Amino acid sequence: MIEAIDFRNAMSLLTTAVNVVTTEGASGVHGFTASAVCSVTDTPPTLLVCMNQASRSHVHFIENRILSVNVLGAQHEQISNAFASKLSSEERFKNGSWTTLETGAPVLADALVSFDCEIEQIQEVGTHTIFICRTVAIRQSYPQHSLVYFNRAYHYVGEVEIA
Score class of each variant (00 low, 15 high):
R134C: 02
Y149G: 04
Y156M: 02
G104F: 03
S114L: 07
Y149F: 09
F93N: 04
R56A: 13
Y142W: 05
V125A: 11
A137M: 05
S35K: 03
V49E: 09
D42H: 11
V136D: 01
L147S: 00
G126I: 12
F83E: 04
Q53S: 06
H155P: 00
T99W: 03
Y142M: 01
T127W: 04
Y154F: 13
I119V: 14
S141L: 10
L147T: 01
V113K: 14
C38E: 03
E161M: 11
G126S: 08
P45A: 15
Q78K: 15
I119Y: 09
C50N: 04
I132K: 11
E118M: 11
A111H: 04
S114D: 07
Y156H: 05
W98A: 14
E161Y: 15
S85I: 08
I119W: 10
S89T: 08
W98C: 10
M51D: 02
P45D: 10
S80D: 01
P143C: 02
S35D: 00
L112D: 07
R56H: 15
E124V: 11
V40N: 11
V157G: 06
Q140W: 09
R56C: 10
Q75W: 02
S146D: 01
E124F: 06
M51Y: 08
S97A: 11
A105Y: 01
E161N: 07
S89I: 06
C50R: 08
E124I: 13
A36C: 08
S57P: 10
N81Y: 01
S68W: 03
T46A: 03
N70W: 11
E77G: 05
G73Y: 05
G158D: 03
Y149T: 08
V107P: 07
Q78R: 15
M51P: 00
W98H: 12
M51A: 15
T100R: 01
A111I: 00
T33P: 02
E102N: 13
Q140L: 08
